[in-house]
Simulated assay, not measured.
Amino acid sequence: MGFSVSASAAILFTSILLMASTLYITWENTYYQIMDAKSYWYKIRESQLHFNAKISSLAAVGTDLQVNFTYLGTPIDGVFDVIFDGTYNQTVASYPYLIPNVEYSYVISGGTSDTLTHNVVQAFANGCVLKFQYQYNGTTVNLLSQSVYCPGVD
């Protein structure tokens, strides 16, 4: 007993429909992933174009350095890394977001243990950095310079 022509055609037609629906779902998922990536790229780029931050104050707390900075750009993720004299120091995850015109602070352990000139880099999730240089003279912390850099932004 074999299949009739109409049964074979029905099986073939059903197989083609299943294959087409699977391909459509795959295409649709790929399309939405591309759109999400494009939206993410635009958000990152916008945060880089509008990124700005400045050191508000530096203070010695024992042998530690308390850094206060004001964020002036569009809201971004509040997690950032601190690099102290070219060495990874810490990840600051105290703030869920950085909001414009708000002052934030963190502490660098051992940041005022000597009177040498020190360099600090705050690296943010959007690729931008706030760099500053300071020196502790035994009583006060002097901010020597600061700058902001974002990749691809002139």
Rank of each mutant, 00 (worst) to 15 (best):
L98H: 01
T117R: 03
G86I: 10
L65Y: 07
Q48H: 00
S147F: 13
Y104H: 03
I16H: 00
Q90R: 13
N119W: 00
S94D: 11
N29P: 00
Y40L: 12
Y95Q: 06
L18G: 04
V79C: 07
V148R: 03
L17D: 00
N52A: 09
I11P: 01
Q133T: 12
L49I: 01
I44T: 15
N142S: 13
V153C: 11
N89V: 01
G110S: 08
I108W: 04
K38C: 02
Y42E: 12
D77H: 12
T74D: 15
S147P: 14
Y134V: 05
A37S: 14
K43T: 14
F3P: 00
H50Q: 06
Y134R: 00
F132Y: 15
G138C: 14
T14H: 03
I25M: 11
L143Q: 08
A10R: 10
D81W: 03
I34R: 13
I44F: 11
Y71P: 01
L12P: 01
V129N: 09
L23V: 04
V67W: 01
V102S: 11
I99Y: 09
S8R: 15
D81E: 15
F132C: 05
D114L: 06
H118S: 03
P75H: 13
S8Q: 14
G111R: 04
T115H: 09
Y104V: 01
I11M: 10
N126D: 11
N119R: 11
V153K: 10
P100V: 00
T115V: 08
D36I: 00
V129M: 11
F132L: 10
W27T: 05
T117E: 07
M35G: 01
R45P: 01
H50Y: 15
H118N: 04
E28W: 13
T70F: 10
W41Y: 13
G111A: 05
Y71R: 01
I44K: 12
T140K: 07
I34E: 15
T74W: 13
K131T: 09
F132Q: 04
T87N: 10
F132V: 04
T70M: 14
Y32W: 15
S94I: 02
A60K: 15
I99S: 08
V67L: 05
I108F: 04
S6G: 02
A7V: 09
T30P: 01
Y42S: 11
S113R: 14
T70S: 14
L130Y: 01
V102E: 12
S8A: 13
I76W: 04
S56P: 00
Y95I: 07
Q133P: 05
E103N: 09
F69L: 10
S57Q: 12
V67K: 01
G110K: 08
L12C: 06
S105E: 09
K131L: 07
H118K: 02
I16M: 04
D77S: 07
A125S: 15
L144H: 03
G78E: 04
K54G: 00
D81M: 09
S147W: 15
N101F: 12
G111C: 07
D85E: 07
A37D: 13
Y71W: 08
V79G: 06
Y149N: 10
C150W: 06
I44M: 15
Q133K: 12
Y24I: 08
W41L: 12
A123N: 10
Y40H: 10
N126E: 12
G127T: 08
P96R: 13
E28D: 12
N119C: 02
Y40N: 09
S109P: 00
D114W: 06
I34A: 13
L58R: 02
S39C: 02
T63N: 11
Y42T: 08
